[in-house]
Design a protein around this nucleic acid. Structure first.
Length: 363
DNA sequence: AATACGGGGCA
DNA sequence: TGCCCAGTATT
């Protein structure tokens, strides 16, 4: 069974840059990027990252803003902040050498049982199991597990199966783990598994009982929630260049460390007037707003968001000349390239670049 | 045990 | 629109 899967992997594995030189640092970075993110999305990010931060020491010494700029668009930004903190931990506790014992790896911020097992099995051949979306599905079908994988007893059982599957000798557990994940990604897919092409079909309990489309059971369905949000564009002219009012988002909240246009982060901002009042309170001066410039629609996790973009103005002319209160700053248009932003923040930036001149005066 | 995380791809 | 993606940390 293992031999067949490994032979299939040898023939069908996709090229991935972290596979050609699987140092612990390479595998670690790739695994963090791959959390909740597909391989194709990760590839360009990974290449650019390794060009900029080729070693743990480079990562530890980097500016957080630069790291966030490299991560921009991948989402789940806590991942990159944890990566940074973990690199510093490796410098302090392990002299800059990536630790190779399970407990030390598990102690790194942002690393759980899956990632620790993946890094050590793939980079060092450690006999450690992995369980994630793909292997959860593959092993559930393998043993025709009726319980949904989210059930804690199912999770425990699947970790045990993943452990028992590992090769006793010869082939590396890392290769086996990757083969199982690759099988899940290419053959044993969530819908329409291609059992005819499966190298281990003969051993699969779900296929034997024709249950492969019923297993794994449905994970409880999520309720989607509609949200309305507002962003306010406040600009001023300085030395022939437009500047925009922006702020870095505070520690601990969503998008921590990213820069954003004025956008209320509290839930319950239902109207643009409320958004303007929020900004007025932030700045200590009255704010009025213009008509809607456009609306961006996007979806993240369980939210369907309509983001209304309006122009706004500080109604006291003097306040435009003063430095705004912390954390607000005037940022030159040409400097926005350097600042890390969310995807929607970057879309607003693109909009401002495309419509540099007009942004008609407020009604 | 449930939820936040705030991006993207695909049917 | 709904679901999934090489999950982890927090509450």
């Amino acid at each position: 069974m293992r031999r067949k899967l490994l032979a299939w992997f040898d023939q069908n594995a996709r090229e991935m840059p972290w596979r050609s030189d699987p140092q612990p640092y390479h595998v670690w970075v790739s695994e963090i990027m791959l959390q909740q993110t597909q391989v194709a999305t990760v590839l360009p990010y990974y290449r650019r990252w390794m060009k900029s931060f080729p070693t743990v020491a480079d990562l530890a010494a980097a500016d957080e803003a630069e790291l966030l700029r490299h991560w921009e668009g991948l989402g789940y930004y806590r991942r990159v902040r944890s990566l940074h903190a973990a690199a510093k931990q490796i410098m302090e506790r392990h002299g800059g050498e990536f630790p190779l014992d399970f407990e030390s790896v598990l102690a790194l911020p942002g690393v759980g049982r899956y990632t620790a097992g993946a890094v050590l099995s793939i980079s060092a051949g450690a006999k450690l199991p992995v369980l994630e979306g793909n292997t959860q599905r593959v092993y559930s079908r393998w043993i025709a597990l009726r319980r949904p994988p989210s059930d804690p007893s199912a999770t425990r059982l699947l970790w045990d199966v993943a452990q028992a599957m590992l090769p006793h000798r010869g082939a590396s557990s890392g290769t086996f783990n990757q083969a199982a994940m690759e099988l899940g990604a290419l053959v044993c897919t969530p819908t329409g598994p291609d059992c005819d092409s499966c190298p281990v079909r003969a051993h699969c309990q779900a296929a034997k009982q024709e249950l492969q489309t019923e297993i794994p059971g449905k994970i409880k369905r999520l309720r989607y929630e509609d949200r309305t949000e507002f962003a306010l564009i406040v600009d001023r002219k300085r030395r022939r260049e437009t500047e925009y009012l922006m702020r870095p988002l505070p520690e601990g909240g969503r998008w921590a460390g990213l820069w954003d246009f004025p956008r209320p982060t509290e839930v319950g901002t239902e109207t643009v007037d409320q958004a303007a009042s929020w900004l007025a309170e932030q700045l200590g001066v009255p704010v009025d707003h213009g008509p809607r410039l456009r609306t961006l629609r996007h979806a993240v996790t369980r939210y369907r968001i309509s983001l209304h973009i309006h122009r706004a103005r500080l109604s006291e002319a003097t306040s435009m000349a003063d430095p705004p209160p912390t954390p607000w700053q005037w940022v030159r248009l040409s400097h926005l390239d350097q600042l890390p932003m969310s995807t929607t923040g970057r879309q607003i930036h693109a909009y401002l670049q495309d419509n540099r001149q007009p942004l008609l005066p407020l009604g």
